[in-house]
Design a protein around this nucleic acid. Structure first.
Lengths: 144, 144
DNA sequence: TCATAGTTTAGAATCGTTCTAATCCCGTTG
DNA sequence: CAACGGGATTAGAACGATTCTAAACTATGA
């Protein structure tokens, strides 16, 4: 038997709520809405503005400030990862595992590259007093 | 015989002027001043603001807008390379060759990693219609 | 149900950067 | 060497992304 839209909506909400609780975040209406959108599908890359547009288009009223707050809270809680590829916008990735990215600057598009396919060798020891936090690889691509 | 300050100043200016001419850039007073500072030593990493502070501290009057214009012109001319490691500021590197970076975010500090020491293997073919422009590796480091 | 601490919000503020339009100056020409 | 023409410089306004503020709201535990 196929699920009704209402039923799958409820499931989403329940899943999002559980995910937030598990991450130690209070499941407010706004966070549940945003989490539902973000984690409905896998490997999403959003900016604050794109997510705000999306949630607005879905007929839900959430302020842009809350989208920013939520993205940061989700990131701190380990639900998202911030990707730095552009000096004027921040991207957030729903894939928090070890992986890298293709970046198509002209369209602000990110594509995941699984960690297994790429290997970085020969990273030198950092200067004394410093330790490696993580190694980011960005493969910048162009049309044609 | 040691050179006087005035003599080395003149040499700097002459070298900077030649470099600008060679790059097809009109050697204005401001560009010569900025080029002298940038290329006096090797492997510098500056932001518009840090360079503006530096040139101002040297007692030279150059507007911030000109620093931005100049950094972009130098980059287009191949004298500088833009480094994207921070979603809120742009860094410019006087080393335009193939190499990578350590980035100490807490202090906005960049350190070059020679291309030879680091190797990236297994970069997959980009999606159809796209071609690789370049591969950037950023080793994010922390204190202690 | 109540209290409280955490959330949300509109709007102002901030920051880095770019734009505008007036002025300036480098290099060429006469 | 003076005049010219177009690129370069500039102050200040404008801009876009993000953060802040302070007031209103709400999830949660007692």
């Amino acid at each position: 038997m196929a699920k009704t839209l209402r039923e799958s909506g409820k499931e989403m909400t329940a899943a999002a709520t559980a995910r937030l609780r598990h991450a130690g975040l209070r499941p407010t209406r706004q966070r549940v809405e945003l989490a539902s959108l973000l984690f409905k599908t896998c490997d999403r890359h959003v900016t604050a503005e794109s997510l705000h547009d999306e949630v607005s288009a879905a007929g839900v009223k959430v302020s842009l400030a809350t989208v920013y707050n939520t993205l940061h809270h989700f990131t701190q809680a380990g639900l998202l990862r911030q990707v730095i590829v552009d000096s004027s916008r921040s991207y957030f990735d729903t894939n928090t595992g070890d992986h890298q990215h293709f970046f198509l600057e002209s369209e602000g598009m990110l594509i995941d590259i699984p960690a297994e396919t790429i290997a970085v060798a020969g990273v030198p020891a950092p200067p004394p007093g410093l330790s490696v936090d993580r190694v980011d690889v960005v493969v910048r691509v162009k049309r044609a």
